[in-house]
Write a protein that binds this DNA or RNA. Sequence first.
DNA 1: TCTGGGGTCCTAGGACCC
DNA 2: TCTGGGGTCCTAGGACCC
Length: 411
Amino acid sequence: MATLMARTILHLDMDAFYTSVEQRDHPEYQGKPVVVGADPRGGGGRGVVAAASYEARGFGLHSAMPIGRAYRLCPQAVYLRGDMKKYGEVSRRIMAILKDCTDLVEQISIDEAFLDVTGSLRLSGSGRELAAELKKRIRAQERLNASIGIAPNKFLAKIASDLEKPDGLVEVMPGQEEAFLSDLLVERLWGVGPRTAEELHKLGIYKIRDIARLSPAELAERFGKHGHQLHRLARGIDERLVAPEHEWKSLGQETTFERDSDDAGQTRRTLLGLAEAVARRLRDQNLLAGTVTLKVRDEDFVTATRSLTLPDPTDDADEIFATVLRLLDRLKARDRQDRQDRKVRLLGVYASRLQDALTAPRQLRLFHPDEKKRQLNASLDAIHERFGGQGMQRASLLGRGQTGTADDGTD
DNA sequence: TCTGGGGTCCTAGGACCC
DNA sequence: TCTGGGGTCCTAGGACCC
């Protein structure tokens, strides 16, 4: 008989991850406000703050803040573009420490993970002892601080990890769930962003305990499926399991121009570059895209998407690019008068309905040079692997004023 | 103060089939 | 000779998370 056993879940969250890595590697940055994100360009840059050190937060800076505003608030900060490759490597080493503790590790972002340590407790003492040990090992090995929350479920563990940042360690004991949540703001709930918070505020609901004032039916009527979830979370109920295996649903790449553009050539070159990057990532992970999506955001920040499901899933850049061009035509055909002449701010290419390339049924196409193409793609991938992005590019990508991607060199 | 880039999930409407 | 209802797939958009 299955028993409803209480679980012990840990949520680990690295403190100001990117900027902490930079401060660790550059002693001259220690004690100073540091920002990783877009290039501020003396206040005129485009983009947002990806991470702000605690010193920078003292000036009111936080992640997702427009970089120009950050610069005006704190021009003396050290502004860095960041090194995602390095952060990824640090992340892998930290995750390895976690996996040393239990197999049940679910990584949810570069610097966050859930652990189900229920099965490890007999051997390793209490959840608190285990969490303290993990923090100690991460500090010893990486010279970085983590905050950890311990609770009977994922949602509470996540909130707990955030409560005493940085270097926090907070435990929610079974039975204390509702008391723990009662005084917190609704914005803390998973799935409550600016829109839902505003809706709740209109109803006079600001704290999590206020949600109990509404019946589940009322919540469901106002917020749909989401409302049901809100009611459960507000009572501290969350039955989601820690899921180590993650199946990708979609992947894609997008880029914002440094300046809005009405240059059709630039649009084409950028889309080709994005199609190639997406195709390469598909091949890299042995995936095929069933659906291709084009995303276009114009100078007024109005975003449109068009997507097309292919008769035969693909990992080939030419096919993806050709599909994207068809979608671009479809987009141009819509509401001709009012948006047609808008400049382009952002372009994106996405692949979804992903299938495993090794097991997906490939359509038999006798006259299609599929095999030849696969070999060509494999050689291109090998060159890319060896020489990086600069190894080989299509001639059409080498035009002037090319893609304006955010990962251009820093100088 | 203008708003990145990587994703997930949900909703609603239309096409199409039975 | 006008029309039901269910099911599935596809598409577009939006809220949300880190």
